[in-house]
Simulated assay, not measured.
Amino acid sequence: MGKTIRVTVWNENRHEKIDKNVAKIYPKGIHGAIADFLSQEPDFEVRTATLDEPEHGLTKEVLDSTDVLIWWGHMAHNEVRDDVVDRVYDRVLNGMGLIVLHSGHFSKIFKKLMGTTCNLKWREAGEKERIWVVEPGHPIAEGLGEYFEIPQTEMYGERFDIPAPDTLVFISWFAGGEVFRSGCCYNRGRGKVFYFRPGHETFPIFYQPEVQRVIKNAVRWAAPVNGPVPTFGNVKPLENI
């Protein structure tokens, strides 16, 4: 058995409170649904945090004991405190993994890490999405076929205003004709960031086995490694000069 990976699943938890359809699909909240399937993995230690908790549930103590943070947000991005965003940002640069799901592309933390608007096209028509694996040797693609399909979802389309990914693992095609870079990996400082497109709140996407597989794989990929801590500034030479 390898090292335990400490996972915090963050969700703004607003749709579930105001939309009966979302509450019916996710009675424990989106964070609860994700935490449930992650908790089945023996090497994961899982907890949740939500927007309305003190400091959004992301205190220094919580983040210091988090190896991988999963982020789902949509309607309340602007309510996330900037000091908490800065705290998450610093932890990523110092090695914590971050997995951003679906509409989290517009979160303050993802935009801060990307340095762009992270804007895109969208359409809510319940159409089919076909997700193609374009990097089959990547750890996040382990256990998948060449593609998998989501029967009904919200469409996201290019142009997706993000920096070119360090590695692009998935590309999506939608029944309406659009395509989208739907699985994007980045290195930021000592930390790793993965953006995964699926997860619209009005469809039971987080119960789909392939989606769960991707998120589990991404947690293991994004977990910190015991690499060297870089030093900066003026240094003495290693050799005589």
Rank of each mutant, 00 (worst) to 15 (best):
R81F: 06
V22I: 14
R81T: 11
R188F: 05
R47Q: 15
L113E: 02
H77S: 11
D36M: 08
G29H: 03
I205Q: 15
D83Y: 14
H77D: 09
G191E: 02
I150R: 01
W173R: 10
T167W: 07
N11A: 12
S172I: 05
V92I: 15
Y26M: 03
P163W: 06
C185Q: 06
F203L: 07
F160I: 10
I99T: 00
L63Q: 04
G145Q: 11
E61W: 02
S65F: 06
P139D: 13
T66F: 04
G183E: 03
K20P: 09
D36H: 05
L113K: 02
D19W: 02
N119Q: 13
P163N: 04
N226P: 09
D90G: 05
P54Q: 10
E146V: 08
K24N: 14
E61P: 03
S103G: 08
L113N: 04
V225W: 13
W122T: 07
T48R: 06
G145C: 10
S39F: 15
V22Y: 02
K108C: 06
V80E: 05
G95E: 03
D86Q: 14
H138L: 06
E53A: 12
T117E: 14
S107Y: 02
D36R: 09
P151Y: 13
M114Y: 06
G227M: 01
H77M: 10
H74Y: 08
G2E: 15
I215C: 08
Y195G: 05
K28W: 11
E149F: 05
A175N: 07
Y26G: 00
D166M: 10
L93G: 11
R47G: 06
N11P: 05
K20D: 09
E16H: 03
P228D: 14
C184Q: 07
Y26Q: 00
E41D: 09
D90Y: 04
I70L: 15
K128V: 10
T117K: 14
Y207D: 12
P198N: 08
W122Y: 13
T202V: 15
M75I: 09
F110D: 00
R213A: 13
I30P: 00
T50Y: 13
V214I: 14
A35M: 02
M155T: 05
V235K: 15
L51S: 08
R197Y: 15
R6T: 15
L113Q: 07
V100W: 01
G104I: 00
W122V: 04
Q208S: 11
N217A: 12
V85D: 05
E16Q: 12
W221P: 03
V225E: 12
V214A: 14
I30K: 02
E142N: 07
G57F: 02
W71M: 04
I34E: 01
E12Y: 07
R81D: 13
D43M: 12
V179H: 15
P136A: 09
D83R: 05
